[in-house]
Design a binder for these strands. Structure first.
Length: 235
DNA sequence: ACTTGATCATAT
DNA sequence: ATATGATCAAGT
């Protein structure tokens, strides 16, 4: 059993959160786990969310499975993003469960996707499987709010995807739809089922789905900030 | 090589 | 089953 030596309180301000996040930039996952007395698994095969939970703990996010932002008081969501040696995302980013019923009156402006992505603290972490989990390093955090253009990019995809759901086309909806935002299965296994509506308006059971940000979208966020660092260094 | 569809752990 | 945290690995 892991025993905590440090009792981590939630950050009171955005500045405090950013200070904590900046403090661990450059450290390995083992170093961070050690100061929390948390054991590092050999790999992520059976601990897929381990890195995310580790950084949540270090930064003082409220643990649990509440449908809230990680730092609700600050209106900030935390996302760890595995990256390769060039800082390019290795995985898509899960946003939230896709609602398959009771979507009357929901618009992009009032959607759960937009709410979740209002303000995100992205923390890149080395994710190549050739690097031992314990030795992977944490990168410089990025506090991001969608630009007008990014918001519009997501809106376009969201509308297309939600239209299909509303029209009962859920079984025809694949991960190929959407340029920046996609819908894919999100469940414990193939036996998990949830309610949806078919093309005739009848209630059916289908695999639960989730919204995911495709890699190219996340990449443009990371790239923008990397370029800023470069231009500063060159001054 | 890369994406899509499937899956793992935990809390409620 | 649904929500949180995501990555795995089969298929193309």
């Amino acid at each position: 059993m892991d025993k905590k030596i440090v009792n981590i309180l939630p950050p009171k301000t955005e500045q405090q959160l950013l200070a904590r996040a900046n403090h661990i930039a450059g450290y390995t996952l083992a170093e961070i786990a050690n100061c929390l007395n948390i054991r590092v698994p050999n790999d992520l095969k059976r601990d897929k969310g381990w890195v995310g939970l580790l950084l949540e703990t270090y930064l003082g996010a409220k643990a649990g499975s509440k449908p809230e932002q990680d730092f609700a008081d600050l209106g900030i969501e935390l996302k760890t993003i595995p990256v390769n040696e060039h800082g390019y995302p290795l995985e898509t980013t899960f946003v939230c469960i896709a609602p398959l019923v009771s979507n009357y009156g929901i618009t992009w402006q009032t959607s759960h996707v937009r709410y979740k992505l209002q303000k995100v603290l992205w923390i890149p972490v080395e994710g190549s499987r050739t690097i031992a989990l314990a030795k992977r390093r944490v990168g410089v955090p990025i506090l991001w709010t969608p630009t007008y253009e990014e918001d519009h990019q997501l809106e376009q995809d969201w509308c297309e995807l939600m239209d299909m759901i509303a029209l009962g086309q859920i079984e025809k909806l694949t991960a190929r739809q959407g340029i920046y935002l996609q819908i894919r299965p999100k469940a414990a296994n193939g036996k998990a089922l949830t309610e949806a509506i078919d093309e005739h308006g009848n209630l059916i059971l289908t695999r639960p789905r989730g919204f995911y940000l495709k890699k190219e979208f996340t990449a443009q966020i990371l790239r923008r900030h990397l370029l800023h660092l470069t231009s500063n260094a060159n001054r």
